[in-house]
Amino acid sequence: MRRSLLPGATALAGVLIAGGAAIRSLHHSPERSFKRAQDALNQDRIIETLMEGTDHETAAYEVTGSKEGPTAVILGGMHGNEINGYQAAADITNWGIDAGRLIVIPLANSVAIERNSRRGPNGDLNRLFPSERTPESTLARAIWRVIEDAAPDVVIDLHRSRGLFNTHQRWIGQVILRTETDGTADTANDVVEYMNDRYVPRSMRFHRFTTTSIHDIDRGSGLLVQKVHHDMGVPGFLVELTDFLLDLNTQLRWTTALTERLLEQYGIQRAV
């Protein structure tokens, strides 16, 4: 009996050790991650500097296609320790697209990113966007103004959770949280199916993506995508990857692929 259990126990130990190493690799050098994102930014595409001259200074970028088309707003770094989101958004500033435009705020919460912290000096930035009211900090108001000026057809906010939805009680990783705007359920379902078929190995069944309405999860009030839905009638998606047994490179690759697929559903095709 002891011998029959050894292979399974050894395999489990290997998974746990590898998973621990993967999680540690995410956090071992936040400074390096921030520097990598800064270096990736396409400075020629800056259209506005928000909070210029303050600790919160950050930039908005515009990526335009050769033809007219829809507009999408993409945000990363609302929470400063969610590296995959801000690195993916920084990379997107270098994309080419066939039509339409992208407005990208890659390092939304620059102070929190520098500190590798979820929260900035004014608390959780993604709780400062109450529906039908003025955003509750100077930075939140600056971000909201950029979104209003963009008049987007869709808003995508990139995040990362510690655990897995329906596996770990507190966490919601591997989920596309969608607003209840018309069409978002079908769109999210398509993206989930695509990611699970093309990217998530069958051996990682707990990491398969799913989707649910953001209103069905108690995340509190003040979320940006909720305000986008309520105040503008625009579809919003809050993308949550996980760092549970998932290395940063994989998180980044999946975040990028998922965002690309979402944009395709709204008529914005990345140019190869």
Rank of each mutant, 00 (worst) to 15 (best):
D124L: 07
G80P: 01
E148I: 15
T167W: 04
A257K: 12
F206G: 05
H27N: 07
R118V: 11
Y61H: 05
L258F: 04
I172Y: 07
T58W: 00
G19R: 06
A108K: 05
T242Y: 02
E62R: 07
A185E: 13
G80R: 06
M1P: 15
V175Y: 04
L252S: 03
T138V: 14
T64C: 08
F206R: 13
L245W: 03
I143N: 02
K67S: 12
A88T: 15
V154I: 14
T167D: 05
S4N: 14
L12V: 07
G19F: 04
I103G: 06
N249L: 02
D231C: 03
F237I: 09
F34M: 04
T184M: 03
G85I: 11
T187M: 15
I147D: 00
Y86A: 06
A112T: 06
F206Y: 10
V155Y: 10
L41P: 00
A188P: 04
R2H: 13
A13M: 09
G222N: 06
F206T: 12
F34G: 00
V234E: 02
Y194A: 08
L241F: 02
P121N: 08
H56M: 09
M51W: 03
T181G: 04
S66T: 13
H168K: 03
G100V: 13
I176F: 14
F244M: 03
R253S: 09
N116L: 00
E132A: 03
D153Q: 07
L75H: 01
R115S: 13
A11V: 12
G19E: 04
I268H: 01
E114M: 06
M51E: 15
N84I: 03
D197R: 14
Q174H: 13
D91T: 05
R145H: 05
E52C: 14
R119C: 10
P130F: 07
G233I: 04
R162W: 03
T212P: 00
E52F: 10
E240N: 05
V175W: 05
E52V: 15
W95F: 09
G233L: 06
L125N: 02
D243A: 05
P235Y: 10
R219C: 11
E260K: 10
A72D: 04
L238Q: 13
T187L: 15
A257E: 15
G8W: 06
Q174E: 11
E62M: 11
S131Y: 01
P235S: 04
V155E: 09
F244L: 09
E260F: 01
L5I: 04
I46E: 05
A9T: 09
K67R: 10
E260L: 02
H215T: 09
P201G: 10
R45H: 14
S137Y: 00
V146R: 00
L263T: 02
H159C: 01
H229E: 12
L139N: 08
F237T: 02
D44V: 02
N189Q: 13
F34R: 11
T138I: 11
P70F: 01
R198C: 14
H56V: 02
V228F: 06
D149S: 08
L238H: 08
N81A: 13
T255G: 10
Q226N: 14
F129N: 02
L252W: 11
L139R: 08
T64Q: 07
R198G: 03
F129S: 03
G123C: 03
R198Q: 15
N42S: 09
S110A: 14
Y266P: 03
G19S: 05
S221Q: 11
G267Q: 02
N122K: 11
Q43V: 12
